[in-house]
Write a protein that binds this DNA or RNA. Structure first.
Length: 230
DNA sequence: GACCAGGCACATC
DNA sequence: GATGTGCATGGT
């Protein structure tokens, strides 16, 4: 169990990188696709979100002006696989209204906005919490901001880095104070955490399939089986 | 059939 | 501020 030093965090990342390879996030063709994808990916498996995005693309709607003009019910019908489809259709509408009014559908203008003020504006949109906003900033707009999710919290607690009931912002600060602010690093660090947590180690009492090894020994498990900690 | 996946808003105490 | 609930599909 570690002290959460910068060196330990980078060691942790290196082990994941060696075991899993670079994750190549975000799997999207355009920044706009990433932004809509961040909404659709809320609390759902990536396969579900991905199908919803494909449906929008096939309907010719993954383009700002067209998506803004489409009615909410039609969008909801296309994104059923992403779960909470009525709420998410509404969130897309909220975003499009703000985006068109604020930036005249020009993504370039949005990208030039200072990170902090942009984060504030986005987080004030209904349906946009810190994780969704930070995903948009990092993966859509290439801003150096660390994304925190449930896995990040669980793993950090398990590793002894911080208390599990810290706030989102406190956990984000923890990482950003210790990891060099580098967009590709923040990108893949979060992706590796998700890769680690995403259905690889099942929450079984006697789990022995935890995937990450160092010198032949399992070293971590996001679900807390007690037999593999170094 | 149970469980959970790349959250968030809102009500209530 | 902590805790509980609605949202409501699809893969394992």
């Amino acid at each position: 169990m570690g002290d959460g030093s910068p060196e330990e965090l980078m060691d942790f990342y290196s082990i994941l990188l060696i075991n899993y390879g670079h994750q190549n996030w975000w799997p999207a063709e355009t920044p706009f696709e990433t932004i809509i994808g961040a909404i659709l990916a809320q609390n759902v498996s990536w396969t579900g979100a991905s199908k919803a995005i494909s449906n929008l693309i096939n309907a010719g709607l993954l383009e700002p002006v067209k998506l803004a003009q489409e009615n909410t019910d039609n969008i909801a019908g296309l994104i059923r696989s992403s779960r909470y489809y009525n709420q998410k259709a509404q969130k897309i509408k909220v975003f499009m209204d703000w985006f068109l009014q604020r930036f005249d559908a020009e993504l370039m203008l949005m990208e030039k906005e200072p990170t902090n003020s942009l984060r504030e504006e986005l987080i004030n949109l209904k349906g946009f919490g810190p994780e969704t906003v930070d995903s948009i900033l990092l993966y859509g707009l290439n801003k150096p901001i660390f994304v925190v999710d449930a896995y990040t919290r669980r793993i950090g607690k398990r590793q002894g880095w911080f208390d599990g009931n810290l706030s989102y912002n406190d956990i984000q600060d923890f990482f950003m104070k210790r990891i060099f602010k580098n967009v590709p690093l923040y990108n893949d660090f979060h992706a590796q955490i998700v890769r680690l947590g995403n259905k690889i180690c099942k929450p079984k009492p006697n789990c022995n399939i935890c995937p990450v090894k160092k010198e032949g020994k399992h070293i971590l498990c996001v679900y807390g089986c007690n037999q593999i900690i170094e």
